[in-house]
């Protein structure tokens, strides 16, 4: 910021333009002046200007009041048993959470254990192995047929009613039109 100002104002020259009325850069410069962040020589130039410029004087005074107010602000003291109560609350929350969320938190929490990043990979591999080992449709006993249990629970019937609807329509069509009949099906 100081360098930008120097481009506009030579180090040795007087400040000829009011920082408040000539651009954002110079306004930032005035803020830095208020915060005592400027280099001594630049600070002297700004001080010389502020002494003769009423708007800049008003601005710096307002800034001073804000800083004074912030300096005067004091946070409320915490109670002596704050730490103890905080720990008790954390333990209470942990007890309330389910076992798997506690496990998950322990697995995913930060730390130095080098196996933690592998936990999701292991979970995916286990899932893949489980799915692969599951028998495919041809090996699953169907449970259908006239000799099986008379009632099938709806949970086992993982079909949508729309599929049943389409199937019934197809069967009705085939029954009436017989368009898909072959010699083998006629033999029955």
């Amino acid at each position: 910021m100081q360098s930008r100002y120097r481009k506009q104002q030579p180090d040795s020259g007087p400040l000829t333009e009011c920082p408040l009325t000539h651009g954002e850069t110079n306004a930032d410069l005035l803020l830095d002046f208020c915060n005592r962040k400027l280099a001594p020589e630049l600070n002297a130039i700004l001080q010389a200007h502020v002494d003769i410029c009423p708007p800049c004087q008003a601005f710096t005074e307002t800034q001073a009041q804000v800083w004074a107010a912030l300096d005067a602000f004091e946070t409320a003291p915490i109670s002596s048993d704050f730490d103890a109560r905080l720990r008790a609350r954390i333990e209470e929350e942990e007890q309330r959470s389910s076992w798997w969320s506690r496990l998950w938190n322990r697995m995913t929490a930060g730390g130095t254990a080098n196996w933690r990043p592998m936990a999701p990979v292991a979970a995916v591999l286990l899932l893949a192995a489980g799915l692969s080992l599951r028998p495919s449709g041809s090996e699953v006993p169907d449970g259908g047929g006239p000799d099986t249990a008379p009632l099938v629970k709806s949970a086992e019937l993982s079909v949508e009613i729309e599929q049943v609807e389409t199937l019934l329509e197809d069967l009705e069509m085939l029954r009436e039109l017989g368009v898909a009949e072959t010699n083998s099906s006629r033999q029955m």
Binding site: S136, S138, D142, V159, V164, L171
Partner: peptide, 19 residues
């Protein structure tokens, strides 16, 4: 697998009617 799926599908009506 496809044949098994088709067979399963054709049995849907039987299953539905047994509900």
């Amino acid at each position: 697998r496809k044949a098994a799926q088709q067979q399963k599908r054709s049995q849907m009506v039987e299953k539905f009617s047994r509900l």
